[in-house]
């Protein structure tokens, strides 16, 4: 019953627990990630693409 103290907040974002963990580890806000899965589900690749995109942007800016 311990879970009763945690309330669900992020149900606007559709993603599996492993994807959420990945996002948390990388400090990614899932709200900014473009979903590619069925019914707008964010998949692992989407998070990776997002990070790659941000890194590319930074590289481009610093050049």
């Amino acid at each position: 019953m311990e879970n009763d103290t945690i309330t669900v907040t992020g149900h606007q974002i559709h993603a599996a627990p492993c994807v959420r963990m990945l996002a948390r580890t990388l400090g990614v806000n899932l709200a900014e990630v473009e979903p590619s899965g069925l019914k707008e589900r964010i998949v692992e690749e989407d998070v990776k693409n997002f990070v790659r995109h941000v890194m590319d942007e930074r590289k481009r800016k610093s050049e």
């Binding site: 879970n3 945690i6 669900v8 907040t9 992020g10 149900h11 606007q12 974002i13 559709h14 993603a15 599996a16 627990p17 959420r20 963990m21 948390r24 589900r41």
Partner: peptide, 9 residues
């Protein structure tokens, strides 16, 4: 939280 959010979604 991640698991619950995932289920909720």
């Amino acid at each position: 939280q991640e698991w619950l959010d995932a289920l909720a979604s």
